[in-house]
């Protein structure tokens, strides 16, 4: 092993690839009963790391632990990171409770994001289920801010109920744009909801796009993505043009802990965004 140069002598002080960098919580927005959006800035200033839409960070709550949380902010905005966290486990609950001024650890960004370069000049279909809107929001910002770079854009967002909708005000303003159709559907609603009720897959048959030159992006529960990919494939989009953001248990984010494997892929390194053509065979098998 001659390639083992001694660039790391004993006790160099390098904290290694697992050490989080402290960031301060700038603001906190409660999205729903269990979901919170945090805006973070690196302590000591600086621009912070740039990221591609679809990538994620490992967020660290001091004394509790780490969780993989996708980037949800505008990739063109420097200096802050935006993360939407749902309180499910210990770590995400601790992260959700952070208040402005609190400190949180960040390492990243990790993973491969949405195929933005391939999308240019094409129609784009975005499908989100529940919290799945969070990793799609950076790419939605990109679509709206460079709208002329893309063909028709269809965004279909499904939520359990109107009270579980994320980014409510922002969606309201996006929906006023006439150059893009942003559909919202919920599983069920009380009488104050005059929008659509049903599942996202029901909105696919009359979505407007040219299947031969369309890139579809989706994120949500695995079953949501499987059904949505099938529905889009039935409309003629090639499986290589349908991109899914996958989720698995994740500990290290650098392909060393083995947890996030899905078939031959490390979701942290090869994903989280992967083309349907490459993963459909594994999605079809139970308990992969």
């Amino acid at each position: 092993m001659r390639e083992f140069a001694a660039e790391l002598a004993t006790g160099t002080g390098d904290p290694g690839p697992y050490a989080p960098f402290p960031h301060r919580v700038i603001s906190r927005t409660k999205e729903t009963a269990d979901t919170t959006t945090l805006v973070l800035a690196p302590i000591g200033g600086g621009k912070g790391a740039r990221f591609s839409p679809g990538q994620f960070n490992m967020l660290y709550a001091f004394g509790v632990g780490e969780a993989a949380i996708s980037m949800s902010g505008d990739p063109s905005e420097e200096g802050t990171l935006v993360h939407t966290v749902r309180a499910v486990g210990n770590v995400s609950t601790a992260l959700s409770r952070l208040k402005p001024g609190d400190v949180v650890g960040v390492r990243g960004p990790y993973g491969k994001g949405w195929p933005v370069d391939q999308m240019r000049g094409k129609d784009v279909v975005v499908m989100a289920g529940g919290l799945g809107l969070a990793p799609l929001r950076p790419v939605i910002y990109e679509l709206y801010s460079h709208r002329e770079d893309y063909g028709r854009v269809e965004i279909i967002y499904g939520s359990r109920s109107p009270t579980e909708l994320l980014y409510y005000d922002e969606i309201q303003s996006w929906r006023t744009r006439t150059d893009t159709r942003f559909q919202v559907t919920v599983d069920s609603a009380d009488r104050n909801w005059y929008g659509d009720v049903g599942v996202v897959t029901q909105r696919v048959p009359d979505a407007r796009f040219d299947p031969a030159r369309t890139i579809a992006l989706m994120c949500g529960p695995e079953i949501m993505m499987k059904l949505s990919a099938q529905a889009l494939e039935a409309r003629g989009i090639a499986p290589s043009d349908i991109w899914l953001s996958m989720e698995r248990n994740m500990k290290c984010a650098i392909a060393q802990c083995g947890h996030c494997q899905f078939g031959p892929y490390f979701i942290c390194r090869d994903g989280p965004v992967l083309p349907y053509a490459r993963i459909r065979r594994f999605l079809a098998v139970r308990e992969v």
Partner: peptide, 8 residues
Amino acid sequence: EGFHVLPR
């Protein structure tokens, strides 16, 4: 400042 990671 919140916390800091000690040098290895």
